[in-house]
Design a protein around this nucleic acid. Structure first.
Lengths: 251, 251
DNA sequence: ACATATCGGTACGGTATCAGACAAACGCGT
DNA sequence: ACGCGTTTGTCTGATACCGTACCGATATGT
């Protein structure tokens, strides 16, 4: 029997967790010894839509490493305005504030597409990377990747049109999920992009008219990924390159 | 003679650098031993307007800790669009990529308001924080502060009007400089805010009409800081709070 | 003082997006 | 099959901002 911790699903089943069977990039990329040490405290948990992985200005009790599903990082203004500044799934983890010795951050981080993943007590993770520089460096490089994602979101919010931003967003989701279907309402998308809901509807029509996607009630289906990338030329790609340089293959 | 390194100005004058005489927040906040060790390699250099402290996708040879002046962090899209994602002066340093084990980042970081500051070889800084966790943690918390600044810039770009964003930007400059005057052309501001140059002109007129600032050729003068903060209510303040929590007093 | 470059103010038409309302379509439970 | 809540499509008018152009005002150098 190789090394590995236990997996507790709904408190009943207990099986070994093997690093090779894991989908989360960060868990896969850490050293075997490091993984084995963490695995003792890793729990596999469901991550239903809307679940808050981290609340604004509160220290997160757990760190999460999604295996499936998508989480959004959203900033809010005092007056209640909000915008998504980042997005992650099995490519990432939360909270990066932990990595930066910040305890907490002002964002709301919640599941946007339901999934599941590994969780462990935040203090446990901190102890692990304080004892292992290579783990800390891996998480730090991921933190840089998220920061760069936020920077390009910022640029995009400032200068690009809604349909391009929507295309970028669909591509980012597609990178982090398995099939070509993404289940989301226009309402939800409008919050992510910080635009009106009807603006999402018309932007989706543009993409659909160009045969880049299919759009159905509650679902967006990627139809022609290459063409979608072409459409989003100026708005998609930079931070993905940066992720691949810093962490590893994204898809 | 107390501890401290040497200061080389234009290669002629050599004097001791004392931590208590330093303005840069990060240099002041690190431990005395840590400062003394770094001081051996710190050079005081002029930072003229336009000087690039870090070029996109190139490892920066030096780390800079400004004492005076302001630097901008700007992201560019492949098509040449650009937007400022952050701003620092004596409150910060560059490059934060170093702190995150990333070697380089995709931003252009350059002086916007001329000044001066301390510089030391990037590798020297890396060695220092690898040997001293408290230094690493300080720089990491600053990195978090910069990231949060970028996040709120992103939110702001998405949802706020130009005059509010301009007010925010003036406040951020004011926080980081000494008097009430900020020397900048409309052209330059338009690049920072990612808007047309005439939009800056009219936005300045709005702020001037409300008696929040004076605007003259090449200069903006803060006239009523409190009222300016009031005007920028929803757009200014969050990331400043975060900086003060993570690092220390900003002004 | 004059030429020259830079900077700032203004104007015009065009358009992306907003705010709000309403109606059609869909899907689920009974 | 029916009813109802959710989701999506569409409309109308308003507006913030854009692209571009042009001209006046201010600095700079000789």
């Amino acid at each position: 029997m190789g090394p590995g911790g236990t997996l507790c699903l709904q408190g009943y089943v207990m099986v070994e967790i093997k690093q090779v069977g894991v989908r989360n990039n960060l868990l896969r990329l850490m050293s075997g010894e490091c993984f084995d040490a963490l695995a003792l405290d890793l729990d596999y948990v469901e991550l239903p839509r809307g679940m808050e992985l981290s609340k604004p200005d509160e220290p997160a009790p757990y760190a999460y490493f999604p295996e499936f599903g998508l989480a959004s990082i959203v900033a809010r203004s005092p007056g209640g305005q909000h915008a998504e500044i980042g997005l992650f799934g099995r490519d990432g983890m939360t909270p990066t504030a932990l990595v930066l010795d910040a305890e907490r951050d002002p964002y709301s981080i919640f599941m946007q597409v339901e999934g599941a993943g590994y969780r462990l007590p935040a203090e446990r993770l901190r102890a692990a990377f304080e004892a292992d520089r290579s783990l800390h460096n891996l998480l730090a490089r991921y933190t840089q990747a998220v920061t760069v994602q936020g920077a390009y979101t910022s640029l995009s919010n400032a200068v690009h049109h809604i349909d391009e931003r929507l295309a970028r967003w669909i591509l980012m989701c597609h990178d982090r999920t398995d099939g070509d279907e993404i289940s989301l309402t226009h309402e939800f998308l409008s919050i992510m992009l910080a635009v009106r809901r009807p603006s999402v509807t018309t932007a989706l029509h543009v993409l659909e008219g160009r045969k880049l996607i299919y759009s159905e009630r509650g679902v967006i289906i990627v139809r022609d990924r290459a063409a979608l990338e072409k459409f989003a030329e100026d708005v998609y790609g930079e931070c993905e390159k940066e992720y691949e340089r810093l962490v590893g293959p994204l898809r």
